[in-house]
Amino acid sequence: MLTHVDQHGKASMVDVSDKPASSRQASAGASIRMSAEAFELLKNNEHKKGDVLQVARIAGIQAAKKCADLIPLCHPLMLSKVAIDFSLNEQAHRVDITALAKLTGQTGVEMEALTAASVAALTIFDMCKAVDPFMQINDIQVIEKQGGKSGHLINKENT
């Protein structure tokens, strides 16, 4: 059964009003690979546009909060926590991004976590593109989700 289509085939937001509220959280990831020069500037906080990772962190948090404005059938959610973490892979000249979204509510937060990770990667791209206009954003995926009727799920592809 399709949940985002009504009986006439029209797009429809899912009615979650009868679902019980529960604690829910999801983490998602993304990565961005860049040239050695761009990576060194990022690592040493020397990009001309400023502190790339701090700006990307704020952008990711804002993106999670605006997810329902960007994805047409997402519910607006009262997020209780959004966190963005970065891991620098010096050998691959890659930044790995992890986004966590959390709430107590009637629907999951996977889309908010995915949006946060994606926008954090896009922000890194924007701030570093003068040095490397051909960076690659990859591996956008849900890592883990907890809560609701599906319980605790871990992406086996990511472990």
Score class of each variant (00 low, 15 high):
S12K: 07
G108F: 01
A64D: 06
E37K: 11
E46P: 05
L70S: 07
K81S: 04
Q54T: 15
L42W: 02
K66W: 06
H4L: 14
L100R: 02
T115M: 04
A68N: 00
I137K: 00
E112G: 02
E37T: 11
K145L: 01
Q54N: 13
V119W: 08
A30H: 04
G148H: 09
A83S: 11
A99D: 01
Q91K: 05
H93P: 05
I97S: 08
V142W: 03
V109T: 00
G108K: 03
R33H: 11
S80R: 07
R33Q: 15
P20G: 01
N89A: 06
A30G: 00
L122F: 12
N45L: 09
Q7S: 08
A28T: 04
K65W: 04
M78Y: 13
I137N: 10
E110Y: 01
K149Y: 08
D6Q: 09
N158P: 03
I143A: 00
L114D: 00
K65A: 04
R94L: 08
Q54R: 10
Q136P: 02
A101Y: 00
C128H: 03
N155F: 08
A11C: 12
I58N: 15
A92P: 04
Q136F: 12
L41W: 04
A56Y: 07
L2R: 03
V82Y: 01
N155Y: 11
G108A: 06
A63Y: 06
I140Q: 02
Q91G: 13
P72T: 12
L79D: 03
L88C: 09
F39A: 02
S31Q: 14
G60L: 07
V82K: 00
P133L: 13
A113H: 00
A56M: 15
A64C: 04
Q25E: 13
N158K: 08
N158F: 11
S12M: 14
K48L: 09
M13W: 15
I154V: 10
K65N: 09
V142T: 06
V14L: 14
H47A: 12
L100Q: 02
L114G: 03
K145Q: 05
Q62N: 15
E40A: 07
A130C: 07
V82T: 03
Q146E: 07
I97A: 03
L77V: 06
N89T: 03
Q106H: 13
R33M: 11
A101R: 01
S27I: 00
A83P: 06
T3E: 13
I124A: 10
R24V: 02
S22C: 14
D139H: 15
E46T: 12
V52K: 10
S23I: 09
T115W: 04
S12N: 13
P72Y: 14
R24N: 02
D96R: 11
S31H: 09
A101D: 04
M111N: 01
S22P: 08
A36Y: 06
M1P: 15
A36G: 10
Q62V: 10
D6R: 11
N89E: 11
K102W: 06
M127S: 08
T3S: 11
D85S: 03
T104W: 08
M78C: 07
D15H: 14
D69N: 14
R57A: 06
N138K: 13
T123D: 07
L153W: 13
K156R: 14
L103I: 05
S27K: 03
L103F: 05
Q7P: 09
D51L: 05
P72I: 15
D6T: 07
K81I: 05
S118M: 07
R94V: 10
K102A: 01
A26E: 05
D69L: 12
T159F: 05
E37F: 12
M111W: 06
